[in-house]
Amino acid sequence: MSFPTREALIDFVYDEARLIDERRFDNWLELWAADSHYWMPLEPGQTDAELVTSLMYEDAFLRKLRFERLQGARTYSQKPHSRCHHVLQRPFVDLIDHQAGAFATNTSFHYVETRLDDQFLLAATARHELVLEDGHLKIKLKRVDLLNSDAAFGNIQLFL
C-alpha cells in the first residue's frame, strides 16, 4: 500500500478498534510504528505529555506490559477479565501528505468497559497520526482525549 486512500485510513481506524474489542492484542501491538506512543491526556487541551501528569503515555514496552499483564495467572484485577466495546463515528481525515508519508484522522467514539456487575461509559475523541513503514500504515501517535478527563474514575483497565 504505497498511497493509502481516504477509505484505507478510515478502515484502519475501525479495524484498530475492532482488534481491541475482540481482545486480539497480539495483532493490535503490530499496528504500531517503531517509535510511537499511546497518549491519554489528563487535562482538556493538554499540550505537554511529559512534564505534567497524563493518564497514559505508553511506548512499545509499556503497551506490551499492559497486554502481557492481562494474561497473567496472578492478575487478580482481571479475574474475571474486563470486556470492552467501541462505537465509532466515521473518522474525519485531517491530513493526507503522501510526500511526507504522514496521515491523520480524528474520530469521536463511545467506549463501554465492563467487569462483573460494573459497566461504565466514556465519551472520547481519538487522533491517529499514521505513517508508512515497509508499505504498511502504522500508528505513530494515538491520542485519546476523554470528554471528562478531569473527572474521578475507578479502574479503567483496557486500551480505549
Partner: peptide
C-alpha cells in the same frame, strides 16, 4: 510525572 501516571492513575496497572 511518569511515576504518577505509572503508579497512581485510574489507568495504572499498578493502581489496578
Amino acid at each position: 510525572a511518569m511515576y504518577n501516571r505509572l503508579i497512581n492513575a485510574p489507568t495504572s496497572i499498578v493502581g489496578h
